[in-house]
Nucleic acid binder design. Structure first.
Lengths: 151, 151
DNA sequence: ATGGTCTCCGATAGAAATAGTCGGCGACTG
DNA sequence: CAGTCGCCGACTATTTCTATCGGAGACCAT
């Protein structure tokens, strides 16, 4: 229903939080969990996934935690979403590679929806974590935000 | 996970189908269900919802069925989606009016996500069923497709 | 007027995704 | 070498989505 999962929300919050704290500050799971009232063990899994995907870097041991792997300006919102949700698609047939969709043979909305999907992707891909924060205060989304994308 | 439900897919297919058949042709549930291999009883419910929302008009009795209530150019993709899924939001707090989100007090992504959501809405709202069909053959989504939306 | 066809509606069962939990392992710092 | 913290897999609970069932009401043709 076009809704992001809670895990994804948590991921975005965490990344945003780290970006606020600065590049040198090691942040641990508990700290974020308490800040936002997120169940610690669930957030831990989310951060682990972000780590695997190379978006953040982990540091073990006491005083350990996480750091952003790159500058907030270089982390796209889409990359965070995809790190958690895997390959995302607006419909079953774009979401699942080997989907056995009964409607496929005569489907009249497959291609149009792909175009819509690509547009949404373009928006999410073009927006960085750093930009997203600014959007918080901005009231208007710039017009130049959406692109045509080849099918 | 940013995916439309199957019901919504069915709704879009059905509306598209009706638009193809022309304004005067009464289409019944069974016909659409067979064309696209959709479970008949489920499609029936979907069409009923579209009827309630005034997107299509029902005609009872034998030789009954459905007609588009307006021209395909006047039916937005968003209106079809919302007819089936109700109020849609990219996050829980925008999806559910009375959501008790534990992250609310300090949430750092609420407003930015709303802007993103509004952008997506703008796209879906500005696209009609008639246009959607053309997007099926087009390879490029026009640049002018996204707007700024007030928060 | 009546039987067949079709929409309409609520309830419910089954399947799948999501949210959250638990327990043990390994790495690091002081 | 002990405590802290990340790492990982399995597990349960909850919610949402998908699909089905049974019956009521509208309508047309004969």
């Amino acid at each position: 229903m076009l809704k992001l999962s809670k895990k994804t929300d948590y991921a975005l919050m965490a990344v945003q939080y780290m970006s606020e704290k600065g590049a040198d500050r090691v942040v641990n799971t508990k700290e974020i969990a308490e800040e936002y009232n997120i169940p610690g063990e669930l957030l831990a899994k989310v951060l682990q996934k972000l780590g695997k995907k190379g978006l953040i870097v982990s540091q073990n041991g006491p005083k350990g935690g996480y750091l952003l792997a790159k500058s907030p300006a270089d982390i796209s919102v889409l990359s965070v979403i995809q790190a958690i949700e895997g390959h995302v698609g607006i419909t079953e047939c774009y979401h699942n590679e080997d989907s056995t969709c009964m409607q496929m043979p005569r489907c009249n909305i497959r291609t149009p929806l792909r175009n819509i999907q690509n547009s949404i992707y373009g928006l999410l891909d073009s927006m960085s974590i750093a930009e997203m924060k600014e959007f918080g205060s901005a009231t208007i989304v710039p017009q130049s935000r959406l692109y045509g994308h080849r099918t």
